[in-house]
Computed example of a mutant assay.
Amino acid sequence: MTEKELHRLSKSELLELMLAVRKEYDELKKENDELKEKLADKEALLSRLDSIEKKVAALVGGV
């Protein structure tokens, strides 16, 4: 939407547009937060797997 088109909107149309933008923002923020949490979980899992791999390598190398 161009700036000229925005100037032609009524106050109620602008409010409706703002509410739609806010709703989309809230949905995207929620999705982003969920993805961040999944990423953190996967990073923690990789860290634990790395630790286990090092311990197994030490046990195998020590035999």
Rank of each mutant, 00 (worst) to 15 (best):
L35F: 02
L35A: 01
M1E: 03
V56R: 05
Y25S: 13
K30Q: 13
L6G: 03
L46I: 08
D26K: 05
M1F: 12
K23S: 10
K38V: 07
R22L: 05
L9M: 05
K30I: 07
E16C: 06
E34H: 02
E43V: 07
L39M: 12
V63S: 08
K30V: 11
D26W: 04
L6C: 03
V56Q: 07
I52L: 14
E5I: 00
K38D: 03
S51Y: 10
D41M: 13
G62S: 15
K23R: 12
K4W: 15
E53C: 08
A40W: 09
K42F: 14
E37M: 04
K11M: 04
V21C: 15
D33Q: 05
A44N: 04
L35S: 02
T2W: 04
K55F: 03
D33L: 02
E24D: 05
E16D: 10
L59G: 00
L35I: 04
R48I: 09
L28F: 05
L35D: 00
D50V: 01
E37Y: 06
A20H: 06
E27N: 07
L59W: 08
K30M: 06
L14Q: 01
V21L: 09
L39C: 15
K30S: 10
D50N: 10
A57K: 15
R48Q: 10
A20E: 10
K23D: 11
A20F: 11
L49D: 01
E37A: 13
N32E: 10
Y25N: 13
S12H: 09
L15V: 14
L45E: 11
L59H: 04
L28V: 06
S47N: 10
M18W: 11
L28H: 08
I52Q: 14
R8I: 02
E3Y: 12
V60I: 08
M18Y: 15
L59M: 09
